[in-house]
Amino acid sequence: MLTAEHIEAIRLGRAPDPDAVAAAVAASEEAERTLRLGAGHVHRDDIAFAVDVDRFDFAMAVTRDPLGLRLDRVAP
C-alpha cells in the first residue's frame, strides 16, 4: 500500500519523500512477514535492497513465459 501511495503521489505531481517511504516500507508488517519466511525463501538483505532508492541503474520487469514468471532487466 505504501509503495502504491508513493507512485500515486508521483503520478499526481506531488514531491513525496522517497527516504520516508523507504523507511516506512522497511518497517512495515509485510516486510517483517517476508523476512520471517527465512533463508530458504528470502535473503536477509532483500528488504534493505528493495528500499534502497536508486541503488541500481535499472529496473526489473516481470513477464510470464511457458516456464512461469520471468524477471528481465530494463535499462532506462
Rank of each mutant, 00 (worst) to 15 (best):
L2T: 09
L2M: 15
T3F: 04
T3I: 09
H6G: 06
H6D: 07
H6N: 10
I7C: 05
I7Q: 07
E8T: 13
E8I: 08
E8Q: 12
E8L: 12
A9F: 00
A9N: 12
A9E: 08
I10S: 05
I10M: 14
I10T: 08
I10R: 14
R11A: 13
R11P: 00
R11T: 12
R11K: 13
L12W: 08
L12M: 15
L12I: 07
L12R: 15
L12F: 08
G13P: 04
G13Y: 11
G13D: 09
R14N: 12
R14D: 14
P16I: 14
P16K: 11
P16M: 14
P16W: 05
P16Q: 13
D17L: 11
D17Y: 06
P18L: 10
D19C: 09
D19W: 00
A20S: 15
V21D: 12
V21F: 02
A22V: 12
A22I: 07
A24I: 03
V25C: 09
A26Q: 02
A26H: 00
A27C: 06
A27F: 00
A27Y: 00
A27H: 01
S28G: 08
S28R: 04
E29G: 04
E29T: 10
E30M: 05
E30W: 04
E30A: 06
E30C: 01
A31G: 05
R33F: 00
T34I: 04
T34C: 04
T34A: 06
L35R: 01
L35E: 00
R36Y: 01
G38P: 04
A39V: 10
A39H: 06
H41A: 07
H41I: 02
V42G: 03
H43K: 11
H43C: 06
R44M: 00
R44P: 00
D45G: 09
D45S: 15
D46Y: 02
D46H: 02
D46V: 04
I47K: 01
A48V: 11
A48E: 15
A48N: 11
F49V: 11
A50E: 03
A50M: 06
A50I: 01
V51A: 07
D52I: 05
D52S: 08
V53S: 14
V53A: 15
V53E: 10
V53H: 11
D54P: 00
R55N: 11
R55I: 05
R55F: 03
R55W: 02
R55V: 08
F56I: 04
F56T: 06
F58P: 13
F58E: 13
F58H: 15
A59E: 02
A59T: 05
M60F: 09
A61M: 07
A61S: 07
A61G: 03
V62C: 09
V62G: 04
T63R: 07
R64H: 11
R64Q: 14
R64W: 07
R64L: 15
D65G: 14
D65L: 09
P66A: 13
P66H: 12
P66Q: 13
L67S: 15
L67K: 12
G68E: 14
G68I: 15
G68M: 15
L69F: 07
L69W: 05
R70W: 01
L71D: 05
L71Y: 04
L71R: 11
D72F: 00
V74L: 02
V74H: 05
A75I: 08
A75Y: 08
A75L: 09
P76N: 06
